[in-house]
């Protein structure tokens, strides 16, 4: 049971707001030592873990071109473009983005959209542009909210779209684990089909919340600093 202290280290470090890198490093070392691994083995685990997970960090490669285009006004242009589509509110635009992200992920096209390559340079400024057209200049809080919702549309679309595709990592993990551990024959197609109901729920729930964003922006919650003019 001692090795479970590693999980506790993560939870405790997190609760006391230590830097997550230190927490995870400490949890790894503590768990390894309690589990009877040699220090050399633990170092080797950190090395191989880093080497085999490099794919999550490769989006770095898109940052130079995005940065270059932004120096020349890409975000301003994206905002301006949205000023023309009068029917497209911020909420409707983001709901459309969610649908598109989910559909492409369900076809196995995970890398087509993403936080670095499409949300920052395109989707977030376009949503802001749509919100500004309808509601005028945005307060700092409203701007943060629109950007946060843009990021959330990308995440929800990816998470609940990708499992509908057969060859995605998580489906292969399930079949790989179950077929070797329990000696069954589970087909990726069955798993992918059973991801469809949740995918539809995700589209409905988050899509509805994105559409509600317009209403929140139109009636921002009254902050205590704002004078209440109607009282007189």
């Amino acid at each position: 049971m001692l090795v479970l202290l590693g999980v506790l280290v993560v939870v405790a470090g997190f609760a006391t707001r230590r830097n997550p890198l230190l927490v995870v490093g400490a949890a790894g070392i503590a768990t390894g030592l309690l589990g009877g691994l040699s220090p050399q083995r633990i170092l080797a685990d950190f090395g191989t873990g880093f080497a085999s997970s490099r794919a999550v960090t490769v989006f770095v490669i898109t940052l130079p071109v995005i940065g270059l285009l932004e120096r020349h006004g890409l975000q301003e242009r994206a905002r301006h473009l949205m000023g023309r589509f009068t029917g497209l509110t911020a909420g409707r635009f983001l709901a459309l983005y969610l649908l598109l992200r989910q559909l492409t992920a369900a076809l196995g096209l995970n890398g087509v959209f993403g936080q670095a390559q499409t949300v920052r340079p395109l989707a977030a400024p376009m949503a802001e542009g749509a919100a500004e057209r309808r509601h005028g200049p945005l307060s700092a809080g409203a701007r943060e909210k629109v950007r946060s919702y843009a990021a959330s549309a990308d995440n929800v679309g990816l998470f609940f779209g990708e499992d509908v595709f057969l060859a995605v990592g998580s489906i292969l993990l399930i079949t790989g684990f179950v077929n070797t551990t329990y000696h069954t024959r589970l087909e990726p197609l069955d798993l992918a089909l059973w991801a469809v109901p949740t995918a539809l729920c995700a589209l409905a729930v988050h899509g509805w919340r994105l559409l509600r964003l317009d209403r929140t922006l139109a009636h921002p919650p009254i902050s205590p600093r704002e004078p209440e003019g109607a009282a007189k």
Partner: peptide, 27 residues
């Protein structure tokens, strides 16, 4: 942009490692 993302850039790869160590140690 990298500088503003800072340490968060390394966290996903650190967590992949933690998963491997947890598996090795029998968590």
């Amino acid at each position: 942009m990298l500088e503003s993302a800072g340490w968060a850039m390394l966290l996903p790869q650190m967590l992949a490692t933690l998963g491997a160590i947890f598996a090795d140690a029998g968590v």
